[in-house]
Design a binder for these strands. Structure first.
Lengths: 135, 135
DNA sequence: TATATACCCGACTAAAATAGTCAAGTTTAG
DNA sequence: CTAAACTTGACTATTTTAGTCGGGTATATA
């Protein structure tokens, strides 16, 4: 798998929004300042979050973003999915039916990576955004 | 975290050795052919495995490698450790006391990555090489 | 003893991924 | 009307990955 800064910052930014509980839209500029994340990078991240309907945008002056869901109802797995990061371990090509590593059948470790994926995805399936800010 | 081909190939190669159960040392050339892994790359991998005493080498003609332990006693976590891959999620700098992301205190998602590490490490702690070949 | 086989090991490199930046917008509150 | 804030695609430097290369050393066996 591959957890990069995009995923990490996305979770940080959303946790920031959730803990802030503003009635107003929250601007990326504010999140940028509070969480020490580059504004331009946040824009890139929120574009994806918006496309996956995790946040909604309000344009114009005094605009910003608001969470589409209640934090106790937003699974972390949804966030990773939005960033094309749906926790895939490097390993065998899941799509091709052709087997692994140029071989004609499944490789000896194939099932292992499948299990690992399940294990990790289960972790993120069971974590809600709310869990991060309760503490 | 970061699972790369080195870790993956290491597990494949060791599983190959375990399933072969030769009394003779097994040459990298044989493993290379059976598992479709470059010989030169295997050499690099086995160097590390040897340093961590996961395998032992027999030099010279008709030499090769033998497993140092019984496969039912070799945890996958040991293999990853040998390859400097002791499952670290990208995230906050664990060593520095200085907090995360240039901030003076722990970031809002700090505990999350700690938990994830534990979750993944537990998976590899509980898996033995034997588990891969029984099936 | 010759020699082929196989381990040993550091240095190097091409390709891919990451972590952003930049530029040029559009929308809308005040 | 203008400043704040979102929108979007393209671009790029740096780092990491996934190996290769080359020149060893050791030893079983013929």
């Amino acid at each position: 798998m591959r957890l990069n800064t995009k995923s990490r910052y996305a979770v940080m930014a959303l946790a920031d929004m959730a803990s802030f509980k503003a009635n107003k839209p929250i601007s990326l500029r504010d999140i940028s300042l509070r969480q020490s994340i580059s504004l331009m990078y946040l824009e890139q991240i929120f574009l994806k979050l918006k496309k996956h309907n995790i946040v909604q945008s309000v344009r114009g002056s005094s605009g910003g973003y608001i969470l589409s869901k209640n934090p106790n109802n937003l699974k972390l797995s949804e966030i990773f999915l939005a960033l094309d990061e749906n926790v895939k371990t490097i390993g065998c090509d899941k799509d091709s039916k052709k087997g692994c590593n140029g071989r004609s059948s499944k490789c000896i470790t194939h099932n292992l990576w499948d299990e690992l994926d399940l294990h990790i995805n289960a972790f993120f399936e069971n974590k809600k955004l709310e869990d991060l800010i309760r503490n």
